[in-house]
Amino acid sequence: MLRPIIRFSLTSVLLLTFTAAAGAEEYFVRIEKVSGNRMLVVNDTSAGSGGAGGPGNAGGPGNAGGPSNAGGRGRGMRGGGRGGGGSGGGGMSNRSGRGRRRGTESAPANATTITIAPSIKITAAMRERRTFEFRVLAELPGGLRHAVFQNMKQPLQARIVTKNNAITEVNVITGDTDINQSGSTANGETVIAIRPKRPPRKQTP
C-alpha cells in the first residue's frame, strides 16, 4: 500500500523540482566582444557555478536546440531560449554592426551573439579570493556603454542569469570593478581620492 504513495510523492517532487529548475538558470560565459547592444559570448566550461546563485548549469546559453550552435543550454529552454535578447546565427562575427566592435578581434567558432535589452540588469561581480564564491556587486550604469565594455582589451568572464527563458541579469567579473569601490586597482595602485568632474561655467547675465 505504501509503494504507490511513495511513487506518487517521488514523482511529484521530481517534477516540481524540474519545474522550479526550469524557472531560473545561470550560465557562465566569456564575453568576447561587445558592439552596440549585442555581446558575443562563449560558453565558459572552466567556470563552475560557485557557491552563490541558483541551480547552476555548466551549459551555456546556446545548447542543443538553442539559439546557436555553441556551448550548453539550460534544461527546459526551447525555442526562444534567451527571451529578452536571443539572437541566432549571423551574429557579430559576420557583421560589422552598428557602433565600434570591442573586445578580441577573432571570434571563436563556438561563439553566440546575444542581444541585451535595456531592461536587463548588468552588474559587476567578483569571485571571493579564498572560497571562489561568486559574488554579485553593484550595477554598472550605462549597461553595455559602461567603461568596462568600452575599454575591454581581453575577454571578460561573466554569468548570465535567466528566468522563464528570459535573460534577466548579466554579472561581469572585472579586474577594476569600479574605481569608486576599490581601494586598489587591478594593477595594485591605491587610489584614495579622485578629482571631481568640473561643472559648467556660470553664465554671466
Binding site: S12, L15, T19, G76, G79, G80, N165
Partner: peptide, 22 residues
C-alpha cells in the same frame, strides 16, 4: 498533475520555432 504543473510554468514561447524567433 505533474505534467500540467510543468507545462503551466513554461512560457508561450515554446510554441514558436527557432527560425521564427531568429
Amino acid at each position: 498533475f505533474a505534467v500540467l504543473l510543468l507545462f503551466s510554468d513554461l512560457p508561450e514561447v515554446h510554441s514558436q520555432t527557432r527560425a521564427e524567433i531568429d
